[in-house]
Design a protein around this nucleic acid. Structure first.
Lengths: 214, 214
DNA sequence: CGGGGGGTTGATTGAATTCAATTACCGTGG
DNA sequence: CCACGGTAATTGAATTCAATCAACCCCCCG
């Protein structure tokens, strides 16, 4: 691909420490690029401090908005993060000269839209128990998919999120999240592992608890 | 633009009556195109019948998913709807030959993603009162924007949605929606007009009630 | 050894749902 | 034109689920 060398020439790497703000509401985002390593949170903040996470950025995800000057959410590094960035004009030029990249970007955005809509159903209609079970399943699926596998009983699921991040993601409080994890363990659907990891004991039970068809 | 005549040649019109299903979960969507007239709802359904609306299609919105074979939500006409459609292969060919259309599609999808994320904040963190007030403001803004205006006190806002549709949109029950409308009227923020219309009495009060900064 | 962040658990409160009854609205046909 | 039937909407009372307020634990790190 012709663009690759061009791309090599204009790319730069930036690193962020956990908690560091990558972009914030109202700003013109300074970076456009691709997340190479780590996890970042996309969240919105109501005037009184309530926070809702509206997206998760993982390696290979695109960061920033082509063709838009202002964003309405915050992007914060949750772990050490490395982003491969381009300056905006360079990137715009690259886009214009290479329709395939734009096509890829459209596909990724459509996937994000689907994910956002799934999440809307969770936030609008699911109970606390269903939300927590759904999150466990989502992470288990994503992890299994990395190796081209399906989630299985016995699978160890690393959450990689604090209780506060989980609560902000699920639209709950940390106390409720904690209670629901305990309840899922009490019902023998999952077992607590060490440090933010848990084990799936009953997959179909977990799916039922998540409000999915089994 | 060269593509216009080509476009004219391959387009077809389809009409739907209120309540008619335009596309449904699991299907390969038969239509790709642009909504010309009317309102359609995008919603997801949990196995036990709970429904969440995840999007609204209005004139000029794009319907369908380029490059994806299966959708995970239902699209239903809420009013009489007309869609300008293309057959998939025709449309794919058009896309390939005309990068500008793809760019436009990307922009529209990014806007939809922003809207979905706003809605996630509403669903995850706002109270019933805030949700109802937010909806009224959203519709008032959209209506005012059609004439290039801002929402004003005295403005008559046509909701054009049944209580059930509002409830499915806001992640509430119809009873709660009804109570909150009554409460907003009791507090003199809005006044009931006839048949699914209401009048804004106190704009900044309504914004406060919606959880926005004033 | 002390302190602090993250996490769990308990008691209480409160907001929204559920269950139930009533009223308003609208098109149809007598 | 009005009575009728059905759907949509409102209102009330009881219940439920999650938030809030508060105490405590655990473990790691200084």
């Amino acid at each position: 691909m012709l663009a690759l060398t061009e791309l090599e020439r204009i790319k730069r790497y930036r690193s962020y420490t956990p908690g560091q703000v990558i972009a914030s509401t109202g700003e013109e985002p300074s970076v456009v690029g691709s997340l190479v390593e780590g996890v970042a949170h996309i969240s919105t903040l109501l005037p009184d401090g309530r926070r809702q996470m509206v997206g998760l950025l993982l390696p290979s995800d695109f960061v920033g908005r082509p063709g838009r000057s202002r964003i309405d959410y915050d992007i914060v590094a949750a772990t050490p993060v490395t982003i491969c960035t381009f300056r905006k004009p360079d990137f715009e030029r690259l886009l214009a000269s290479n329709p395939a990249i734009e096509r890829r970007l459209l596909d990724m955005t459509l996937d994000e839209l689907d994910a956002a809509r799934d999440w809307m159903t969770l936030l609008g209609r699911k109970s606390a128990r269903e939300r927590v079970a759904s999150l466990v399943l989502m992470i288990a699926r994503r992890d299994a998919a990395l190796n081209g596998e399906e989630p299985t009983e016995g699978q160890h699921v690393p959450l990689r999120l604090t209780r506060q991040a989980i609560a902000d993601y699920l639209g709950l409080t940390i106390e409720t999240v904690s209670r629901q994890f305990s309840a899922l363990a009490r019902d023998a659907l999952v077992a607590h592992g060490s440090q933010r990891t848990l084990e799936i004991l009953d997959l179909s039970g977990l799916m039922t608890a998540a409000g999915e068809a089994v």
